[in-house]
């Protein structure tokens, strides 16, 4: 019993928390740099109120674009941390955009109500899954960080803890 307890302490120390505590693969804590940075592809999609939102609307800001779906386990797990990132960086000129792939607004609304904290950043609908292909996404979730000049500076393939200090620091540095 004592060995088991000590092992658990060690494991939780290594992976610090949430993912292991839920018995799931751990979320990553870092963003991978795009070298060299490339211009972000166009993005213009309806939001949940059916108003068009374009990446170009946020010119001069750092934008985090997250492609996701409600049925994708790592997407579900990282969604709360995206909202915490949004709350922590909005005042610094950082925008977060969620791009849902292939689902309807009812499904998305139902899901968002289950997330704590519930996302308040714009959710866009890529109903035909065309934008996700245009961006070269190959698996969900995939997240891009666009700098103030409209270039992709970081990419994250797979689930992340977006409110991890390492990620917050990288995004804040772009916004300065």
């Amino acid at each position: 019993m004592q060995i088991r307890y000590l092992s658990l302490v060690l494991l939780l120390w290594i992976f610090s928390g949430a993912a292991v505590a839920q018995g799931l693969p751990p979320l990553s804590h870092s963003l991978t740099p795009m070298d060299p940075p490339i211009p972000a592809p166009p993005l213009s999609l309806p939001n949940l109120d059916e108003d068009k939102v374009a990446l170009s609307d946020f010119g001069g800001k750092v934008v985090v674009v997250n492609f996701w779906a409600t049925w994708c386990p790592p997407c579900r797990r990282e969604m709360g941390s995206l909202e915490r990132l949004h709350q922590a960086t909005a005042a610094s000129g950082v925008e977060v955009l969620g791009v849902n792939v292939g689902e309807d607004s009812d499904t998305i609304f139902s899901f968002l109500g289950t997330i704590d904290p519930s996302p308040t950043f714009p959710m866009l609908l890529d109903a035909e899954a065309e934008t996700v292909d245009r961006w070269g996404v190959r698996g969900l979730p995939t997240t891009y960080v666009i700098d103030r000049e409209g270039k992709v500076r970081y990419r994250a393939v797979g689930g992340r803890e977006f409110d991890h200090p390492q990620i917050l620091e990288a995004i804040r540095a772009l916004a300065k």
Partner: peptide
């Protein structure tokens, strides 16, 4: 769309530091 995107990717590039997929 749900079927296609729930599958493990046909091909992918993962950078070190924790890029990953589940499918």
């Amino acid at each position: 769309i749900a079927f296609r995107w729930a599958q493990f990717p046909r091909e992918q590039t993962y950078r070190p530091g924790g890029d990953w997929n589940q499918g």
